[in-house]
Design a binder for these strands. Structure first.
Lengths: 174, 174
DNA sequence: CGGCTTGGCGAACACTGTTCGCCGAACCGG
DNA sequence: CCGGTTCGGCGAACAGTGTTCGCCAAGCCG
């Protein structure tokens, strides 16, 4: 439960930033140790002087992304007339703006050992506040939002489906 | 939109069945062309005499799995006192019994071109019926169920979280 | 100045999906 | 019964993956 991110060299941070760019531009297949190395002007083996392995690289990207995600949710909920609706808009907006990053963060087990302490809780807080502090409601609402986003990103809804309506229905009275 | 599954040889069907076993036993990393071949007593290149490529193999597994999933949902909803609750139990039950299969089916774009015609609609029907025919309600409820299942499978809820309670809250009044 | 650390590098390894050419057996028409 | 075709195996090979190894040049520091 320690949760510690290893502090990185400047090159290390550069690699993490480039990895995120690669991921967002071309999806997970585009994030290759060789192409990442090329992006910063070195060769693949040199990456391992700065990061233990690809898992650690991805964990660093997750940590950055989750922090931004939490920021976006906090900003949306904060002082909003309808916090829950605002949360939904922010949640969906982040996922559509950063689909590959969203999946890296939310579609696999969290690398909790490699995340800054408290980050996960910070990311969960805005929704918990928006539903009035009830964990069951927060979980149900999170599941709905996550499900909507994942199904939209994987193109599972029919072509003309009115997803705004589904969001409205799903968030109604929560 | 044609949707046609290529009819397979006996060996082909054997390969698809073995692929499903491999997937369910060891997850996607375990489903390798070489290990699959070994499972049926041949070598990897021979697979390509029966299946075009790994994508087609996976599509065949998806088709089989989605059919079973649809069966399970139909059976649960059919004649149930509370169809929606029954749907939830069946949905979660299938996902927990076949986590890797569930993800192969529902956590990526459907290979619609390689699926039997009507299968996707058949899989969607039970939930649509359970919510009384409203597509928006059906989509919202599907998103909730999918989100709950994915977050549970990826271990995103806190250790002691009462997921039954979250399911109850999420399904209440839908 | 000498030695240690830092951060590059090429070569290599085990693994992945996939393609190629070969080849034996089975089948089937003349 | 013989000859040709098809079927379904096979080994070798290729490009790409993450990763490890040993080497080595530059910089820093006592």
């Amino acid at each position: 439960m320690a949760s510690s991110a290893p502090e990185l060299t400047a090159r290390g941070r550069q690699l993490v930033a480039a990895a995120r760019d690669l991921l967002e531009e071309g999806g997970p297949e585009a994030l290759t140790m060789r192409t990442l190395a090329a992006r910063v002007g070195i060769r693949a083996p040199s990456i391992y002087k700065h990061l233990r392995d690809k898992e650690e690289l991805e964990a660093a990207v997750v940590a950055d992304g989750l922090g931004e995600f939490a920021d976006a949710c906090e900003a949306a909920v904060d002082g909003a007339g309808d916090p829950l609706a605002a949360f939904g808009v922010a949640y969906r907006g982040f996922a559509r703006a950063h689909p590959h990053l969203y999946r890296l963060i939310n579609d696999r087990p969290l690398p909790r050992d490699r995340l800054p302490a408290g980050l996960e809780a910070r990311a969960a807080a805005p929704l918990l506040a928006a539903v009035g502090g009830d964990p069951d409601r927060a979980r149900a609402t999170w599941a709905f939002a996550h499900g909507m986003v994942m199904l939209e990103l994987t193109d599972r809804f029919p072509a003309g489906a009115d997803l705004d309506a589904a969001w409205r229905v799903g968030l109604a009275g929560r």
